[in-house]
Structure formats: C-alpha cells, structure tokens
C-alpha cells in the first residue's frame, strides 16, 4: 500500500528525515509517536506531497509519487491538528467542495454522500452551520468527514486531538476508531498513548528523523526495548496524568 525507501528531507541545513524506510499494508493502522521535533509531521507531509523530499522513493499502491505524478497523492486524505476547515463555507459546502471541483461529481450525488458522512460522524444536524459555530471536536469531525468525501484509501492524521480541550478528545478518537474498524489504512501521529495502544496494528517510534522502533503496540508500551523510548513514555504519561 505504502512503501517508503530511504527518504531524506532537510530544511536548509537541518536534516529532519534521514533515510526513513517503511512499508504499510492495506488496512493497517499505524501510530507514529516520538518527541517533539523528531520529524513526525514532516513524514506525513512528505507522504502527501506538502513537503518535497530531497531523496528516496515513495510508492503509493505501487505507483511512485513524484511532482509530475500527483494522482497518487489523491489516494490519501489528511487531517490536521488545526482543522483547516474553510471558514466561509458551511459544513456541507466544506464536504462537497473537492468532490465537485476536483472530481467533477454531480452535485446531488456529492450532497448525498456528504450527508451520509456527516451522519457517520454525528454532525448531520450541523450541515448548514459555519465552522466558527462549532466546537473544536465538531470541527475536527467535519475535517475527517471532508477528507473521507474524497474516498481516500489512506488517511493521514497529524495530532488530530492536540488542539482540543480534554473533554472533546474522546468524540474525535471514537470516529477514528470506527474508521480503523472499516479497514481503511491509517497513519496517525498522536500523543494519546492509550489510544495508540488500542487502535494500532503497529507503532512507529521516531527520534531525530529516524524510525528507531517499528513494532506491535504491546511490545513498545509493555516492554520498550530501548532506554530512549522508556524515557519518552514515562515523560509523556506523567504529562497526560497531570493534564487530567
């Protein structure tokens, strides 16, 4: 499904991804964890073409993605920490924008699917609201539905709950969990360790631009192999406790 080979990415003289390689199978759910600045966002952004990689190869469903082959990017949807909904469009308009403009779908059809997606994330009654009228958790659920409206095979989440008030985190994680059950391939950058452990088939631990551990959740959370990961987990778990 996704295959990355020796991906390198630098910002001027700062190397942010160094020789990252991994493979993700259809339907797998991957959590990406690691300290701040380790390159998690950059990795996701490189996958979907928001950042240009300096070297290495990237295959999506067997097709190599390049600047002149943007089609492969369309297999992916992305959800951002800051939602990035279009504020001048209603919830429904946010969902149908790309299906209409990019895929040239029939409007009635696009609306129908958008309404179904809104039902799925529990926001059908908000379809005519503007983003400014929604809570953070609702915004993020709309953002997820908007990405799904393009029927992606792969969903990328970059800290989807990090800018939410603690009491709103659950509703978003529930929606993502439902997606995981639907066999959609997902890469999720998150600081929610309990969620990562629950939902993922594998966990990538990133540090200084490398995936230093790629393993099943039990292994990383119950029995972390390296000191580095242990330290990180101890720190983040105590942070999560103190914030609750």
């Amino acid at each position: 499904m996704i295959k990355a080979k020796n991906i390198c990415k630098s910002f001027t003289d700062l190397e942010v991804l160094s020789n990252v390689s991994f493979a993700v199978k259809q339907g797998e759910v991957i959590s990406i964890i690691g300290p701040s600045g380790s390159g998690k966002s950059t990795l996701l952004r490189s996958l979907i073409g928001l950042e240009k990689i300096n070297s290495g190869q990237l295959f999506i469903e067997g097709t190599q993605v390049k600047d002149d082959n943007k089609i492969a990017y369309r297999k992916m949807g992305m959800v951002f920490q800051g939602f990035n909904l279009f504020p001048h469009k209603t919830v429904l308009e946010n969902l149908i924008e790309a299906p209409l403009v990019v895929n040239k779908e029939k409007k009635a059809l696009a609306i129908k699917r958008a309404e179904n997606l809104l039902k799925k994330v529990g926001l059908f009654d908000k379809k005519n609201s503007y983003p400014a009228q929604l809570s953070g958790g609702q915004k993020q659920r709309v953002a997820i539905a908007r990405a799904l409206a393009m029927k992606p095979d792969i969903m990328l989440f970059d800290e989807p709950t990090s800018s939410l008030d603690p009491e709103l985190v659950g509703e978003v994680l529930t929606v993502i969990k439902d997606l995981a059950d639907e066999n959609i391939t997902m890469l999720i950058v998150t600081h929610e360790m309990g969620f990562a452990r629950d939902v993922s088939d594998r966990v990538f631990f990133m540090d200084q631009g490398k995936i230093i551990s790629d393993t099943v959740p039990e292994k990383i959370f119950v029995n972390p192999e390296s000191k580095r990961i242990q330290t990180f987990l101890t720190k983040i778990l105590s942070q999560n406790d103190s914030s609750q």
Partner: peptide
Amino acid sequence: IPEGQYEAAEVLGLNYRQTMSRIIIPQ
C-alpha cells in the same frame, strides 16, 4: 489567510487556480 487553508486545499486536490478563486480570494 493562514497557510493551513492552502494546505487543506492542496491535500483535497484543488489546483492553484481553484484554490485562489474558491478558497483564498473569497476569504
């Protein structure tokens, strides 16, 4: 207009012209 608006439009597949005329200019 925040950078995130361009990024959201890009990952949804809108091209530059569509992004400007439908997302950025109206705001």
